[in-house]
Design a protein around this nucleic acid. Structure first.
Lengths: 332, 332
DNA sequence: AGGCTTGATTAAAACGTAACAACCAAATAT
DNA sequence: ATATTTGGTTGTTACGTTTTAATCAAGCCT
């Protein structure tokens, strides 16, 4: 339980505490000989910088917060892994918090992040109202929105064009000769679901079809919910194409359809959204709209850290990636 | 960018800074009237405690570290979600770090955690050598091992009996009438893979069979690796039962088998390990050995926080959960 | 030789909070 | 009436670091 402080290192190396601090933070300012001596002492005593003291004095920490809607969803896992990569490359730590889609829990988590004086927050907001984010910014905590376009130009955001993705999915289904398309959506409070539906609508209109789709709304975007949605669809009479708001829903749907004796894609075409690894490995591999998930996380983290490290020259960007259609076996 | 300190709150409420601190940390010590007044000021000024200052002074932070081997694996995602739950209930933040199985990266991450003076670390170690963990403890950072039994009684650990799990899997296969069992393993540096194999061995011996199994070793425990393993197995001649070291491998295997025209379970029985959600949703639902993943995370976090909050009365526990066989469609 | 620059080092003052001893008034005990 | 306890509040110090201004020595210029 020995805590070695900068002071003891200084004493051991025969210099002042200030010099040790300089070795740590601006090594070029100190003569090579003393620098080596100090570094030797650091190693010998096993000193590690006290982050709390450091950030108290310096006025900022080397931590960022990451607030996601569902850590169990491979989409966010991939995003998180991209964030973690960039952060650890640049010596930042990531505090993870999971809102579980609950704006109340999200707010409480943001308070915890504020207490930790994180340098900034990457957030996929659980609700459309962004006033909480403004309050964070008033406290000097930068905010980058992830998988959600910013409505304002004074904030960075990284998103993927969900309207385009929805259109891509449905026009692929139509091209394959499908006629009646059903949309399996997650909760309607989730922007992504609404945008993808809007895109689907547009594609239908563009093709001169009736824009009305059968729609099933699930309470969660999980495989289990997808299976339940399948039952609803089977009871109501199957369409000849199904567009699921994400891959997990689609995988659950696929399972239930096959089990009910429905052939995919012969009887019904099925397309998912995200491009998670498992969508490829499913026994009938899943056509999907692929999003650059890791890239999303990496870019968001880079924007945030750039804003933190160069507050002067930084200009806010609203980045919008384009999703890509990946055709596999589940669509004709 | 206004930073409200305890001092300004004190001034606003007409009390001393010390009283504000008391309201924050031992509200029972301060008269109801002043307490209310201070709390009103806190709300009005939008004060939030400066975590760095607090932990500098108090000597300990309200953060724990979580170091996992692969954040992309649903197993660890579930564990993480259990940890996050408990931590956020008790006001702790979780710093996530991903070793990606690389002991070097793990060490670097642990250094970052040490700098942040986390209260403790939950870790699924990437290597058997635990001296790094001892060094952490010398620094006053408690360590709880997750999904890895502790070799020593002075440390908490939470694990699942992998030997029993391996035996469970293989004896189920044998009960179903299988004869030649193959084992698809992850990297042999991973203890879990070795233990599950050992269990498989034991089950074979107990049943009076030849304990030698065909074994395929994959470089990673992913669905993709499972598909590749299937090709190897198909080329070498199929056994009549396959035990995969985790569900992701099994799902990839399942996909490749079905695609090659192999019927599951008629031609070959297949069993996985973990019990991830998707194993249920796969078109031929996967028999598996279910582990209490969230529970693992919750328990580990509870042990750690108990050790932190009651250092006197805490006694170290090595908890070992028992895995459960879940029979579904992929085995006969 | 005296004044100047340069480069390296140090002393001291913060940063915002927690904890402890000291203090004070009011209530109780003697 | 005085002494003692009690409940509530405050002043002060310390936590480990960063930073700024100040100091010092050595080299250079005229």
């Amino acid at each position: 339980m020995t805590v070695v402080s900068i002071k003891e290192v200084a004493q051991h190396a025969g210099v002042s505490p200030g010099t040790v601090s300089n070795v740590l933070n601006r090594p070029e300012k100190v003569a090579a000989a003393t620098r080596d001596r100090v570094q030797a002492s650091i190693r010998e005593l096993g000193f590690v910088r006290h982050g709390s003291a450091s950030s108290l004095r310096a006025g900022h920490s080397r931590t960022i917060g990451l607030s996601v809607i569902d850590i169990g969803n491979p989409f966010f896992t991939d995003v998180a892994s991209g964030v973690e990569d960039v952060a650890s490359e640049r010596g930042y730590a990531v505090i993870l918090s999971n809102s579980a889609g609950d704006p109340g829990k999200e707010s409480r988590n943001l308070l915890t992040l504020a207490e930790h004086r994180v340098r900034g927050v990457l957030i996929t907001p659980a609700a459309e109202d962004t006033s909480r984010l403004d309050r964070l910014r008033d406290r000097g905590i930068r905010v980058v929105m992830v998988d959600h376009p910013s409505d304002r130009s004074d904030r960075c955001s990284v998103a993927v064009n969900d309207v385009a993705g929805g259109a891509l999915a449905v026009s692929h289904l139509l091209t394959g000769g499908c006629d009646r398309v059903a949309y399996v959506s997650g909760p309607l409070t989730i922007r992504q679901c609404l945008d993808r539906k809007l895109g689907a609508h547009r594609a239908l209109i563009r093709a001169g079809r009736d824009p009305e789709m059968v729609e099933v709304v699930t309470p969660a975007m999980t495989a289990r919910a997808g299976q339940q949605a399948a039952e609803e669809l089977l009871a109501a009479g199957l369409p000849d194409a199904i567009f699921c708001a994400n891959d997990l829903l689609a995988l659950g749907m696929l399972r239930a359809l096959l089990q009910a004796g429905v052939r995919v894609p012969d009887d019904v075409s099925l397309i998912g959204y995200d491009g998670i690894d498992l969508a490829f490995a499913s026994p009938v591999s899943l056509s999907t709209i692929k999003q650059p998930m890791q890239q999303l996380g990496r870019t968001a983290a880079e924007l945030l850290l750039d804003e933190c490290d160069n507050p002067g020259s930084h200009d806010h960007q609203q980045i919008m990636f384009q999703p890509e259609l990946t055709v596999r076996e589940s669509t004709r």
